[in-house]
Design a protein around this nucleic acid. Structure first.
Length: 284
DNA sequence: GATGAGCGG
């Protein structure tokens, strides 16, 4: 009763010779024809993660039935040459460790829904992100101690039981860097003025060659003083330079000096132009 | 001649 095979896909479920068949891994081989008309072999290894043979009782009973019709007299149960036994295969299609359910919920809610789609500043409850709060300098320190550097905060170390996790009130764990009185990255990441990088003295350098790199400019301007940041304007897609760059210094006087010295200077057979930068246009 | 990216409850 061998039924003639009708397609490549019928060649499924045979063991690759010389391959160990693990009880919990089934190897399924398929052949199909791709867009270029070529035969492709697809080998799939299906791992059984469930308990073996989770089958309804009635279904299991059917395996004992005598065969009838054209199959009369053949061995009981499915003939693996012609029949693929369905298994309980659970596919969990998800990205980022999210369950499918939570992913759906996420799609439903609008992207920026914190307070009904409105952004609310944590400091002043204004209509902007906390980072752009106009009162950030004065209020920021209250929310996150150590923000302004050597502030007058006391050096109180949290009591041991507070550090060990949930207290009697069920408070959340707070990493050491965020505990009151914590010193560390927050301080070292900021310049001496306590300001952030948006108000560093910055020069706009134009007429640079398109293959000028950040490091080239660092070298060029580093002689005058500490360079805080270098940005080279590039084409988004190609990455090629667009002929201008921004160089930020720690010290405004240094920036001033650098501007005077480098402006009009030849570099890479071009004449550099150095001006104070304008603050970045901020989209309102 | 030329004016940046990124982060986020």
């Amino acid at each position: 009763m061998s039924i003639p095979k009708t397609s490549w896909a019928d060649d499924v479920d045979e063991l690759v010779s010389g391959q160990q068949e693990d009880d919990n891994i089934r190897t399924v081989i398929e052949y199909s024809v791709n867009e270029q008309g070529k035969k492709v072999k697809i080998t799939r290894k299906i791992k059984r993660t469930l308990q073996k043979s989770v089958v309804e009782h009635q279904v299991a009973e059917r395996q004992k039935w005598e065969k009838f019709g054209a199959e009369r007299g053949n061995a009981r149960g499915p003939d693996r040459a012609t029949t693929t036994v369905g298994e309980n295969v659970y596919l969990t299609l998800s990205a980022g460790n999210k369950s499918a359910e939570s992913e759906q919920q996420e799609e439903k809610k609008p992207v920026k829904s914190t307070t009904g789609g409105k952004v609310v500043c944590r400091l002043c409850k204004g209509d902007h992100f906390t980072a752009k709060c106009p009162y950030r300098d004065t209020l920021g320190g209250l929310e996150n101690a150590g923000d302004t550097g050597a502030g007058p905060d006391d050096d109180t170390v949290p009591p041991p039981d507070a550090a060990s996790g949930a207290g009697p009130t069920g408070s959340k764990y707070i990493p050491p860097s965020l505990r009151a009185g914590a010193r560390g990255t927050g301080e070292t990441m900021r310049g001496p003025g306590g300001g952030n990088r948006d108000d560093l003295p910055t020069l706009r350098v134009t007429n640079i060659s398109e293959d000028t790199q950040e490091n080239d400019l660092r070298d060029l301007f580093g002689h005058f003083g500490r360079v805080a940041r270098v940005y080279v304007g590039r084409d988004r897609d190609t990455g090629a330079g667009k002929g201008f760059a921004f160089v930020s210094f720690e010290d405004r006087a240094v920036a001033q000096k650098a501007m005077e010295k480098v402006n009009g200077k030849g570099y890479d057979n071009l004449i550099l132009s150095v001006q104070w930068s304008q603050p970045r246009a901020d989209p309102k």
